[in-house]
Write a protein that binds this DNA or RNA. Structure first.
Lengths: 192, 192
DNA sequence: TTAAGTGGAGACCGATCTGTCTACCTGGGG
DNA sequence: CCCCAGGTAGACAGATCGGTCTCCACTTAA
């Protein structure tokens, strides 16, 4: 299965940087040093390869964020660590994750715009998982269920907004600014 | 120039719905009922046509948002009107703007990922203009310059975040939630 | 040594891509 | 009535698309 992983990794890098529809299968196999037959023995179609890259990035990104938040000393720091991680990502200080070209799931959703498309659904799924991760931390800090939901969604929205600002406008401080807003929202509800 | 406008409008709808690289020139001219030669007499290349659609959408979207905010009775309502407009957009209650397929500028930036690419720059330009519009309203409400900048950027980030949540996850209430967060930030700084 | 299987290189298929060019049609002003 | 500008239809070129298939070199195991 090592060859398959290599293929997915190369395909992801190309799709992420240049866009899915801008990269042909020939480019992928050339870059991976693999025969076309090999690719099609692992994936039934280009779309299946795209789906694999989304899954690959989902696991990679989620594991990375989870690692960054779990190493925080307490739950509040864990939420701040999320934004610190984003800041490292935007400013290319993070080797575990690839160079920043926006959020792959947002980018892929732009190319597979139909919400019902299975690849778009994979992206939605990733975002739901990220919201779940945030919610787990927030629910350790607050007991009121409505507060937990509202805060978690707000933090998720700030994360997406910061990612867009960083990519579209090139605002490298977007994560720091989003962190400050998140802190304000958290402080306003400090449980005592 | 009427034919040119028709071409841009049709191209925009296709690019917006299906993505720029997924739509060929032949599809555009077929849908517009125009000869290929006519297209190339108005635009030197596909990329020039794409640039025209970004400009078209920029003017259209900005005028729409400006109209919605300017008809508000006061400056605070103007900011709320921004999120009400987004809500109408996400839920397809707005005829002036096309059916919702995410933010065209985010989508196009995903396909032209290089920040230095002229088309990406057009998208950044639009976002800067939107931030400027928000800042104009916020600066009527607060006198402290730092407060104005922080708040304006926060509102812009909430707007982008809500748009992403609505598109990727299909969260139709994203604008309402973002509005509530924006209101909280504004209230916390109420000038008195 | 030989048989089986895997993967690399790349020819090939039909479709489609961007972009050019020819040929024909049509309507309005001299 | 003629001319010509501007439009249509669409052939065409050269490249590339996704996907299939053949051929051959190499490895591994009996």
């Amino acid at each position: 299965m090592e060859r398959r992983e290599q293929l997915v990794s190369v395909a992801f890098e190309l799709f992420y940087r240049y866009g899915v529809h801008a990269i042909g299968i020939n480019r992928v196999i050339a870059e991976a040093g693999v025969a076309k037959k090999t690719l099609y023995s692992h994936f039934s179609s280009k779309e299946a390869l795209v789906a694999a890259t989304v899954d690959y990035r989902d696991r990679q990104f989620f594991a990375w964020i989870e690692g960054r938040t779990q190493s925080a000393p307490d739950e509040l720091s864990a939420l701040y660590a999320l934004f610190d991680a984003l800041d490292d990502w935007f400013n290319e200080r993070e080797k575990l994750i690839h160079a920043f070209h926006g959020c792959y799931f947002i980018n892929v959703s732009a190319e597979f715009g139909d919400l019902n498309h299975p690849i778009h659904q994979q992206c939605a799924s990733h975002k739901r998982a990220m919201l779940g991760l945030i919610t787990r931390h927030v629910s350790q800090l607050f007991s009121d269920e409505k507060t937990v939901i509202t805060l978690s969604e707000a933090i998720a929205t700030l994360k997406e907004g910061a990612t867009v600002q960083a990519h579209v406008m090139g605002d490298l401080k977007a994560a720091v600014k989003a962190k400050a807003i998140a802190a304000e929202l958290l402080n306003a509800r400090e449980e005592h």
